[in-house]
Design a protein around this nucleic acid. Structure first.
Length: 455
RNA sequence: GUGGAUGUAGUUCAGUUGGUUAGAAUGCUAGAUUGUGAUUCUGGAGGUCGCGGGUUCGAGCCCCGUCAUUCACCCCA
């Protein structure tokens, strides 16, 4: 027998891990619902025609494809098959793939159901996605995303609410030291226009996005290799060196940018900041980061990224506004959308590292009923029913074993109370309640136990 | 897709310039304790040293290949 294993980059989640994961899911879900988002689920697999071409060439390579059922080689062009040309025959042997993110399936859903949807449509979606890249720290082939998006409005209130939701989620998780980075694709375009990088925007954005990672020297090296002149690179760093408050940076760039898209980006950001102020929210944890670019090619307006400070892991959340998404599904009236996505798996690693998981979530039953003889077990069944009727998570040890073993079981399951039932207790009509954390015990009535454990 | 590191008990790891029967801690299990756990004491089970080949009188250790894990790059949650 071969040793069993699971595919690279996938994980099992045992009871301890699930308690922690559900804490994260519940926190995010309740914030989303509080802001008026409604749940949506889409299929694990999509038709490849939906997925391909939405994530760029790199993204297409990272799609997991599903082999057609049945005699999948029957209709394949034999010349291509003979030539071992995998790419050329992919379309004939596979027509479905696993979803790569939640935004594209959402856009697909909106286009398919737009007759029935009331706009602006606010939906949240918590489901796993799959990417076929090589796993590393904080990076998996199967992982969960928690998305919230609004489509059908260009109002910048959505952007402001995204900032507020991020703050609430982080607060609910107990994370205090974090930074919400915000930028705008228009600002990036403004930089590109200012240093006359027309046609080389992508190389520029990719390079400056790495600023905090590889530093000024790394970025200028990369840019000169991409054909940027030294004086342009110098000009770029003059812009990126803009310091001060969000407002100061915005004013400095407003004076500098000549292009329309640059000014549009700055005025959008001003509106978002104003809306936050008007909501009674300040700009704490919010940083206008001129060098923030983000990879996904479909963002067109504001872009977000959330970093937990002093933890060596990539961003735990990201998002932005996209204007052209439904257009790629042949939608004539192009809908604008804006959204945010939290990476549960990374949040998990962060909370683990900072030891922020509440202790209670790891508990299962609140009380374990132990018994010493057959008759006491039957007596315990009534106690068990009464406890459950009172809404107290409880269980009865199923086997007739030594008390030692039963208590050991309670310890391992981190059950904080046990009830011991023997001949004495049956006669007296009282139960021995034992606090497993303190090590104390006393004989009390069932009513008193229910009262104690209900709090 | 590119490059580096690591594979020894369920887990975390020792293992000398290559030398006889591969160890520890922890966990598991049974007992000391027939009504009291997380402390203590005693016993027990548990290993194809990732896999395949090579060098050697002799390989856990050296060499080659392979697979797996992991870190970094590209890209990304």
């Amino acid at each position: 027998m071969e040793k069993p294993s699971i595919p690279k980059g996938t994980r099992d989640f045992g009871p301890a891990a699930m308690g922690k994961r559900q804490f994260i899911f519940n926190t995010i879900r309740s914030v989303y619902q509080k802001y008026g988002f409604q749940p949506l689920e889409t299929p694990t697999m999509e038709n490849l025609s939906v997925l391909t071409g939405k994530y760029g060439d790199e993204g297409d390579q990272l799609l997991f494809k599903i082999l057609n059922s049945g005699d999948y080689l029957k209709d394949v062009d034999s010349a291509k098959l003979e030539a071992r040309n995998s790419k050329a025959i992919t379309s004939s042997i596979s027509e479905k793939g696993l979803r790569y993110d939640l935004t594209v399936p959402f856009a697909r859903y909106v286009v398919m159901n737009r007759g029935e949807i009331t706009f602006p449509f606010k939906r949240y979606q918590i489901q796993p996605v799959w990417r076929a890249d090589r796993p590393q720290k904080g990076r998996y082939r199967e992982f969960y995303q928690c998305d919230a998006d609004v489509v059908g409005t260009t109002s910048l209130l959505c952007e402001a609410e995204i900032v507020m939701m991020i703050r609430e989620v982080m607060k609910g998780l107990g994370v205090t030291d974090f930074t919400i980075k915000i930028n705008h694709r228009g600002v990036l375009k403004g930089i590109a226009d200012t240093i006359e990088a027309t046609g080389k925007e992508t190389a520029l954005y990719v390079a400056i996005d790495k600023l905090d990672k590889i530093g000024k020297e790394g970025v200028s090296k990369e840019l000169s290799e991409a054909g940027f002149a030294p004086d342009k690179i110098e000009l770029l760093f003059n812009i990126l060196n803009t310091t001060g408050s969000n407002e100061e940076k915005r004013l400095a760039l407003t004076a500098l940018f000549k292009s329309e898209s640059g000014q549009k980006g700055l005025s959008d950001l001003k509106t978002v900041f104003d809306l936050l102020e008007a909501s009674g929210s300040n700009q704490s944890n919010l940083e206008f980061d001129i060098s923030l670019a983000r990879g996904l090619s479909y963002y067109t307006g504001c872009i977000f990224e959330v970093k937990v400070n002093n933890v060596a892991i990539g961003s735990v959340s990201g998002g932005g506004r996209y204007d052209n998404l439904t257009a790629s599904f042949g939608d004539k009236e192009n809908l604008s959308g804006v959204g945010i996505s939290f990476g549960v798996d990374r949040l998990y690693d962060v909370l683990e590292e900072l030891q922020l998981f509440p202790k209670e979530i790891q508990r299962s039953s609140k009380v374990l009923i132990c018994f010493l003889d057959t008759e006491s077990m039957r007596y315990g069944l009534k106690v068990l029913a009464a406890l459950r009727a009172a809404g107290i998570a409880s269980e009865l040890y199923p086997d007739e074993s030594k008390l030692k073993k039963q208590l050991d079981y309670a310890n391992k399951k981190m059950i904080s109370f046990t009830i011991v039932i023997g001949e004495e207790e049956r006669k007296e009509g009282k139960l021995m309640l034992k606090n497993m954390d303190a090590g104390t015990q006393e004989k009390v009535s069932l009513e008193e136990i229910i009262k104690t454990l209900s709090t």
